[in-house]
Design a protein around this nucleic acid. Structure first.
Lengths: 335, 335
DNA sequence: GGCATTGATTGAAACGATTTAATCAACTGT
DNA sequence: ACAGTTGATTAAATCGTTTCAATCAATGCC
C-alpha cells in the first residue's frame, strides 16, 4: 500500500468507505463515536485525500485561476493579494498564472484552466481571447474580467475608470502649463493603453491647446520606459515634449532614469506623471506623481463578484463595477 | 451531452476510445490516417481533456507547485520568472502560492499540493515544515528548497550564500568607517535573517571594533522598515547607529523613507545597505547600495534541479547549489 | 503456401473518491 | 406487541481517462 486511501481508513476504523467519505464531507451525517474513530484512523495512517478522484466525481475543480499581465508589476501583485484575501476566507486555492503580455502564454494558461475544469477564472486579457472565454463559460467555468470591460458586455467585470484616469493626469499636466505631452506605453492594442491615451487626447482637445506625442512600446516595464524616453530625446529640440504621461509606474520610473541620465531636469524641463501609484513611486529619486488605482480593492471586488457568479451561474445580470482612480501629486510634476 | 468526451470523439472518428487516447498521448502508435480523422473530430467537437481523470489514472499531477515568502517582493517574482522559464520549456504549469510568511497559509498550500499529488514542489519555507516536506516526499512528490538549505541536508536545495552576503555588506560599512550598525529584519527565526545577522556579527568581531544592534521585525516590507528606523531613532543619541544593514531592499526603502522624513541625512548621518538589489533599489530617492542576488538564476537553477529529481527520484545524491551574491555600491553608502 | 512478425486497433480493467438508494437497528406512541 | 419513524450505515454505481493484454490484418520469409 503506497499511500493510504479511504478504503484503508475505513478498514482501520471498522466502517465502510462511504462512511469515511461522509465523515469528511458531511460530518453531520455521522455519529460522533464513529466520527472520532475515523479521525483517529486518518491521523494514524496519515491519510490525505486524492483530489483528482474527488474532482473527477464532483465534475469541477474547487480552485480559482487567475491570469495577470505582468507578475513583476507590483500593481498586479497587489490585485492578487486582494483576490487571495477573499478566496482564503472561502478556502479556495488560487492558481496564479503570468501571461507576461504574451498571447501564447495566456492561451496556454487558459488551456490549463479548461483542462482542470476550474470553477472560476479571473483574467486581465492580453490578446484576443473572447472566444476562448466564451467556450470556458459554456463549459461551466465562471469568468470575471479584471481591469478591463468586454466591449460586448457579455462577461461581468471589475475595472478602474481608465478614461477618468487619463483625463485627470492630462489635465494636471495642462494645469501646470505643459503643452507637449509624450504618452509612453503599449502595445497600443491593450485596452488600458488605448483608453488612457484617447482620454488624454480628449482632454487636450477640450483644453484647446496642447498636443499628445504617442511613443508606442512593446511592453510596460522600466526598460520600455528608458527606451521611450530616448525616442523623445532624439526628437528635434522644437518637438521635444515638456511632459511625459507614462502608461504605468514602471515605465515612468524608466523614463525618469533615462531623463536624469541625459541631464534633463525633472520636473523643470520635463514633468512626469505615472499610473498605478505603486509603492515604489513615492520613494523614487524624484518622487513620482501618479494616478492611484485601488489595486487591492480591485482584486477583492473581482473575487467577490466571481464567487457570486459561481454561486448562481445562470444569474441573468452581467455586473460591472467601476472604481475611481485618484491623482497623487508629488515632486515629478511640481516645484 | 454537456461536454464532449473521448467516447464522443471516438464515435465521430469511427474508432475506439483507446485509440483516441493513444492519438493524444502516444501519436506514434497511431496510423497517420486515423490520427487525422481523430484530430478533425476533436476540432469539430471542441474536445478538451478532463485533467482530473487523466491525473487519477496517471497517479500524479504534471504541474509544479511553488510557495514563496512574499509575492509583493520583487525578489521573489524574479525568482518565479526564472522558474517559469524552465518549466515552460518542459510544458509544465506552475502553481504559485504566497505564504506571506504566515505558517498557516504555508501549510494550507502544502495541503493543497499534497491533495493534488503534485510531481514537484519548490519552497522557501517560512515556518517549520520539515515534517510536512518529508511526508510529501514519501508520497512521491519531489521537493527542492529555494534560498534555504536544510540543516539535515535531506533535501536538494539551491541557495545564495547568505553568510558571504552578510559579511560583504558589513565589511563595506566598516570600511567606510561606520561602527554602530543597526540590523533590521525578521522574524529572527527565518533562516535568511539568522544567517545574515550572524555573518554580520562575525564580520564585526573579526574587525575588532564595531557593534551590531538587532531590531527584529515581524515581516520584511517597507512598513517594517519604517518601524525599525523609528526604533533606532528612539534610542539615546549616544547609542544611535551610524549605519543600517537591512535584511532586504523593501525594508531598506522603508528605512530610507523614515530617516529622510526625520531629517536624518543619508548617508552622512546614517548609511544604508540593503539586500537583494531589486530593480527599484537603483531608482530610489537616494540610490541604495545593496547585496545583489541573482534571483532569476536562482529560480532557473532550482527548477532545473527539481526536474532532475523528478526524473530520478531514487537518485541517492542530494545536491546543493550555492550561488554567490555581489555588493553593489550606490549613494546610500558613499559620498 | 504456411508460419512468424510487425503494426494498428480495441475491450475491459483499472485509478480513488462520492453519491444514491437501500438496509438495518433502535425508538416512539398506541 | 406492532406498525411507523428516525438516524446511522453501507453496497454498488459512477465520474472520464489511460493502459494492458488480446485481437486482427497485412507483410516478409523460406
Amino acid at each position: 500500500m503506497a499511500v493510504a486511501q479511504v478504503r484503508d481508513v475505513a478498514a482501520l476504523a471498522g466502517v465502510s468507505p462511504a462512511t469515511v467519505s461522509n465523515a469528511l464531507n458531511h460530518p453531520a451525517k455521522v455519529s460522533s463515536a464513529t466520527l472520532a474513530r475515523i479521525e483517529a484512523a486518518i491521523d494514524e495512517l496519515g491519510y490525505v485525500r486524492n483530489d483528482a478522484a474527488r474532482q473527477l466525481r464532483a465534475g469541477t475543480n474547487h480552485a480559482i485561476g487567475m491570469i495577470v499581465l505582468d507578475i513583476a508589476n507590483p500593481f498586479f501583485t497587489d490585485v492578487a493579494r486582494g483576490v487571495e484575501d477573499i478566496l482564503i476566507a472561502d478556502s479556495r486555492p488560487l492558481i496564479l498564472g503570468n501571461s507576461a503580455q504574451e498571447p501564447t502564454r495566456e492561451v496556454s494558461y487558459l488551456d490549463l484552466f479548461e483542462q482542470q475544469r476550474m470553477s472560476g477564472v479571473l483574467i486581465t486579457p492580453a490578446g484576443d481571447v473572447m472566444d476562448r472565454l466564451r467556450r470556458l463559460r459554456d463549459r461551466g467555468t465562471s469568468v470575471v474580467l479584471v481591469d478591463r470591460m468586454s466591449r460586448a458586455k457579455e462577461f461581468s467585470s471589475v475595472s478602474i475608470d481608465d478614461k477618468m484616469g487619463g483625463r485627470i493626469a492630462t489635465e494636471h499636466l495642462l494645469d501646470i502649463g505643459r503643452r507637449r505631452i509624450g504618452f509612453i506605453g503599449g502595445p497600443g492594442g491593450l485596452s488600458q493603453v488605448k483608453t488612457r491615451l484617447s482620454a488624454a487626447r480628449a482632454a487636450v482637445d477640450k483644453h484647446g491647446s496642447g498636443e499628445i506625442v504617442f511613443v508606442e512600446t512593446e511592453t510596460m516595464n522600466a526598460q520600455a520606459g528608458r527606451w521611450g524616453a530616448e525616442q523623445l530625446l532624439a526628437l528635434p529640440r522644437a518637438q521635444r515634449p515638456d511632459a511625459v504621461f507614462a502608461a504605468n509606474d514602471l515605465v515612468a520610473l524608466g523614463v525618469l532614469q533615462a531623463l536624469t541620465l541625459a541631464g534633463v531636469r525633472v520636473p523643470d524641463d520635463i514633468a512626469i506623471v505615472g499610473y498605478d501609484d505603486i509603492e515604489f513611486a513615492a520613494s523614487a529619486a524624484i518622487p513620482l506623481s501618479s494616478v492611484r488605482q485601488p489595486a487591492q480593492q480591485l482584486g477583492s471586488a473581482a473575487a467577490t463578484l466571481l464567487l457570486d457568479v459561481i454561486a448562481d451561474p445562470a444569474g441573468t445580470t452581467v455586473k460591472h463595477t467601476t472604481l475611481k482612480p485618484e491623482l497623487v501629486v508629488r515632486r515629478s510634476t511640481s516645484a
